[in-house]
């Protein structure tokens, strides 16, 4: 059967098409502001990590995470910050850490885990580390957390 018709962009024939930008509230911050926030957070996270405060570092990195268009630099920066936290956590500490995160941060962490899995070989990302975090996070926050990471259009 000829299935090429499925590749036709039918939305271009619809004057009342639903746009991606209408599906979520845009980040109220200016892109430049988002980048400088991310840089500040990276520094703060490093000092938290030096003190061994994993939960504090994670909460910092996951609060006001950059999303939406035009903030790719900040997104990469925040992902790098987050990966450094994930990599420096002992696997025995992970269950305690994910349980003590507030639900919103758990959802954001899940988004970053899936983003990390979609970028094999990016920076010092390791698949096995991501999978351990994913397993522990799912035990703490349930499948609902995965569903939320998949439905949310505010991509990190």
């Amino acid at each position: 059967m000829d299935v090429n018709f499925r590749k036709i962009d039918i939305d271009q024939y619809d004057e009342d098409v639903l746009l991606e930008s209408e599906l979520y509230e845009p980040d109220p911050r200016d892109p430049a502001q988002v980048v400088s926030d991310a840089k500040q957070k990276a520094t703060a996270v490093r000092s938290s990590l030096a003190k061994g405060d994993i939960v504090g570092a994670l909460t910092l990195a996951l609060t006001d995470a950059p999303y939406g268009p035009n903030v790719d630099e900040a997104k990469n920066l925040n992902l790098q910050t987050l990966v450094s936290i994930l990599n420096s956590t002992k696997s025995s500490e992970i269950p305690g850490v994910v349980k003590s995160l507030p639900p919103d941060s758990q959802d954001t962490l899940m988004k970053y885990l899936y983003k990390g899995m979609a970028l094999p070989g990016w920076g010092d990302l390791s698949g096995s580390v991501l999978l351990v975090w994913h397993e522990k996070l799912t035990e703490a926050a349930g499948t609902g957390c995965i569903v939320r990471a998949m439905t949310d259009r505010r991509l990190v």
Partner: peptide, 25 residues
């Protein structure tokens, strides 16, 4: 909604309470 959550709205308040579930939608 499909993000595994249920919200209860009181327009008079106005207050919105959201429960995020650990299970499926």
């Amino acid at each position: 909604s499909h993000d595994s959550s249920i919200s209860i709205v009181y327009p008079g308040g106005p207050a919105i309470y959201t429960i995020k579930l650990t299970s499926l939608p």
